[in-house]
Design a binder for these strands. Structure first.
Lengths: 158, 158
DNA sequence: CTAATCGGTACCGGATTAGTACTATTTTCA
DNA sequence: TGAAAATAGTACTAATCCGGTACCGATTAG
């Protein structure tokens, strides 16, 4: 399973909360209560998102965080990217490519960027605005994605 | 950064090797040598891919592995899915959804499937055949994906 | 019957991540 | 002017997860 860190997971939860607050500043404590997440973690994440330019912070009493941009202009890729660094898959395809000493033999190395780009595009096509609209009809349950018809997979217990 | 396990990474390397071998059975040892990967790991991965129906195995002397389907009919999603389970992001969106006790408060929970589906589609659009063609022009270096224009991210040292 | 090869399970060490604690800085408000 | 509220930053710890290994059983060719 492709994975992102819990930090990014929480990040999306927090950003949607802020999007729904529509301009009203929210303190880290209020957000943590609302989403039932550990406060220190929430603080940390909000700080990172602020440094990334996705949030604006106001210190002092009555302070808090607000979105730095309209929700429509923030994508899932932005949020995840801010919290996890550049969106890229695999040890072989990020900046630390140097240590991949078998580059010459690694015929696919040049192909990972294509895969990464596909994923990046997919994530960028989803805006925070969409994510923060409580969906009307109850969840279409995609949870186990149907596999390709020609192929069966084993379902590992997770 | 979004990550897959090294298992899936190796899996793609091995599958491309087998695709290039075009029907000629390859032993685990031969593949490990060719790709310079640790043999036990290679064994493990090939076994999993076989169980998933992507490879056929032949035991005994002169045995080995071959693709179970034409390379054009195998996608990156198939390979990654076989090695990592269903393609899904985050603890909150897979089968073990039960343990996500804050489901009611979690407005986005219904949206993860959309994100997952986008990624799944992106991965499925890339066939093993494409991946195993040594690309003519040397790698377009996407390595650091350019971020959204409106947003700056901190580059964590990886 | 022997060697080669795949099949399966159990286990360990190390890296990464989640989470915490503490302190400094800034701002509001009485 | 001082106290309280809130963010900012850094350093640290504990637990989880993953890569990798070892070992033995099963199967087939010659």
């Amino acid at each position: 399973m492709i994975r992102i860190t819990r930090e990014a997971d929480y990040g999306i939860l927090l950003m949607t909360a802020l999007a729904q607050a529509k301009g009203q500043p929210c303190s880290a404590a209020a957000l943590a209560r609302q989403r039932r997440l550990p406060l220190p973690m929430v603080s940390k994440i909000l700080k990172t998102l602020t440094r990334a330019g996705l949030l604006k912070s106001q210190r002092g009493a009555q302070g808090g965080y607000i979105l730095a941009l309209p929700a429509a202009e923030i994508s899932a890729a932005d949020i995840i990217g801010a919290l996890e660094g550049p969106i890229a898959i695999t040890a072989c395809s990020d900046e630390s490519h140097d240590r991949c000493t078998r580059q010459e033999d690694c015929e696919v190395s040049g192909h990972w960027p294509r895969i990464n780009f596909a994923i990046y595009t997919a994530l960028q096509s989803i805006s925070l605005e969409e994510l923060s609209q409580p969906l009307a009809s109850r969840p279409v349950r995609f949870h186990s994605l149907s596999r390709a018809t020609t192929v069966r997979t084993v379902d590992r217990p997770v």
